[in-house]
């Protein structure tokens, strides 16, 4: 179920890389912004659903601000961008600690309640179902956007070849801004659900970011389809590890697959499928 949320994170991460060649290590921090915006909103007695929308909007805005205020000026230098986004992530972590403290907190679920699946002996919270549905709606909408609309196709075109896209009259700045907005909105959605299902703390961004990295490497950098498939692959592998090896070995099989992919297919499962340099 949570695989869909991981796919959201990975898609945002990989889109930014595909379009701008930027490894945005502050992507995890955007997830944190989403979760803490929701936390602040719900503790100010704003209803959960409105808080959720607010979190998505704020995170998208933060993502855009990150691009327009910083990355835009340095994106030609990969190393500087890489380092600058790390610095932003650490800075945001400190700000969150100052504002909210370092102890983890739990978010109010957007919807509460649970169902017991007796046949498989597990319980699913409605909020898990909601996370699944919302993530898939978002992924579906994105898919429609980038394949069926001109605006969206310009994003896809840019990630295939910047020069080609420019030659066909694509405004690069606009495309990049749009990409950052979408990636930010996805991170906001993911942030609220991860903050609800796991924990909301100043360190919460690290493991989703690492997972996004693994997913993107397995799926192929720059590929949306690859991210979705790899996210599910990782999700199933984690579940399988829990079933076969026990809960403490959750991450083992996915790391094995990561190493195997790096050795056998360094471009990932769907790497560079659309690139025609």
């Amino acid at each position: 179920m949570i695989s869909a949320v991981y796919a959201l994170i990975a898609i945002g991460f990989t889109m930014i890389f595909g379009v701008g060649g930027v490894l945005n290590l502050a992507h995890g921090a955007l997830i944190m912004i989403g979760a803490f915006t929701y936390l602040a909103a719900t503790s100010a007695a704003i209803p959960p659903f409105a808080g959720f929308l607010l979190a998505v909007v704020v995170t998208a805005a933060a993502s855009y601000a990150l691009y327009a205020g910083l990355v835009k000026y340095i994106e030609d230098n990969i190393v500087i961008t890489f380092l600058a986004t790390v610095v932003v992530a650490l800075l945001l972590t400190e700000l969150v600690i100052i504002q909210f403290g370092s102890a983890p907190s739990q978010l109010l679920p957007v919807i509460s309640g649970t169902i017991y699946l007796e046949a498989v002996g597990t319980r699913i919270r409605y909020v898990q179902l909601l996370a699944f549905v919302v993530s898939w709606i978002a992924i579906g909408a994105l898919w429609y956007y980038v394949t069926k609309t001109d605006e969206g196709r310009s994003i896809l075109a840019t990630s295939m070849s910047t020069r080609g896209a420019e030659l066909t009259g694509v405004d690069l700045q606009k495309v990049k801004s749009r990409t950052w907005l979408i990636a930010g909105a996805f991170a906001g959605i993911a942030g609220v659900f991860i903050g609800t299902l796991q924990s909301t703390s100043p360190q919460m961004w690290l493991s989703p970011l690492a997972l996004a990295f693994i997913i993107v490497v397995i799926g192929g950098i720059g590929s949306i389809k690859g991210s979705v498939i790899a996210a599910y692959l990782i999700g199933y592998l984690e579940t399988a590890s829990v079933e076969i090896l026990g809960p403490s070995f959750q991450g083992v099989l996915s790391l094995v697959v990561l190493v195997a992919i790096l050795l056998l297919k360094p471009n990932g499962l769907f790497g560079r499928e659309l690139v025609h340099e």
Binding site: Q198, P247, Q250
Partner: peptide, 18 residues
């Protein structure tokens, strides 16, 4: 059972106990 310190998904442990 024992839980690794970085566990963030407790459903499997609680399912087993149930």
């Amino acid at each position: 059972d024992r839980m690794a310190l970085d566990t963030d998904n407790f459903n499997p442990f609680l399912d087993d106990a149930a």
